[in-house]
């Protein structure tokens, strides 16, 4: 499936807050249907990279291209059209706290589709059922647990059947079984709808189960130090830091600097 033309291209991206450079010279390509993992030690700018990709922060330098079109060079109206093809799940869920779960999912549908109220409600129930929250339509985000909020956030991210789903640490705070179900759901969505996923995660189990492409950010060198399929990365990458990460601090690779 990687034989297609690139779907998302990040080119020589430099991310900075004011004069503080978080990461520089990031270049990687994501194909349609990829499950792309962003990994790295804590504080290296994984979430910042995600925010750059979804257009919340303007890059200090470099470009993010979607199907060959640069996000930041496009006029705002085109950017909005692009944004509609994205779904985003935040670390905390970021549900709108003044609305019930069903209303949260209904909002993007009401904005961008011509569906009737009953149809929207029906679809919201379906999305909630997909993440295992059947019957919670009329709960407010403050009335459910953190893990449930996260799943509801996922349901909202999937509301418009987006082309690309961005997940910021989807399995953090989920119990192992829910985390496993989430992985299954991701694989299922890719198989059925051809959705592309960009996932920030630390979960090694997830990384190896679902990821087929990835980038590894290093906080010290402030750039990416490895990219590609995580399984291949584990087998081939000679960087001790990447190896330690992928083996939970296991022994260094057999041949150094091979």
């Amino acid at each position: 499936m990687n034989a297609q033309k690139p779907h998302i291209v990040v080119q020589d991206l430099t991310m900075a807050y004011g004069s503080f450079v978080v990461q520089s010279h990031l270049t990687f390509t994501i194909h349609r249907g990829d499950i792309f993992i962003i990994m790295g030690d804590s504080g290296c700018g994984k979430s910042t990279l995600l925010n750059h990709m979804v257009g919340l922060i303007e890059p200090a330098k470099g470009e993010v291209l979607y199907d060959g079109v640069s996000f930041w060079d496009s006029p705002p109206a085109d950017r909005d059209l692009l944004l509609r093809r994205f779904g985003l799940l935040y670390q905390s869920g970021a549900l709108w706290s003044s609305m019930t779960l069903a209303e949260n999912i209904a909002l993007p549908l009401r904005e961008y589709t011509r569906m009737s109220g009953a149809e929207i409600r029906e679809l919201a129930s379906l999305k909630l059922a997909l993440v295992g929250l059947t019957g919670f339509e009329d709960y407010y985000p403050s009335e459910i647990s953190g893990g449930m909020r996260k799943r509801a956030g996922l349901a909202r991210a999937m509301a418009l059947d987006p082309d690309i789903l961005f997940f910021d640490e989807p399995s953090a705070g989920l119990d192992p079984i829910s985390a496993r179900l989430l992985d299954d759901l991701i694989l299922e969505l890719r198989a059925s709808l051809g959705t592309t996923f960009v996932v920030v995660t630390h979960e090694l189990a997830s990384i190896f189960t679902i990821g087929n492409n990835s980038v590894f950010l290093d906080a010290e060198r402030k750039t990416m130090i490895a990219a590609g399929d995580p399984k291949q990365m584990l087998a081939e990458c000679r960087d001790p830091k990447v190896h330690r990460f992928l083996t939970r601090g296991g022994p260094p690779p057999a041949r150094e600097n091979g």
Partner: peptide, 15 residues
């Protein structure tokens, strides 16, 4: 809403 990233969630939906 800003603290909870709810405003970011609106922006990324293009709202």
């Amino acid at each position: 809403m800003q603290v909870n990233q709810e405003i970011d969630a609106l922006k990324t939906l293009g709202i």
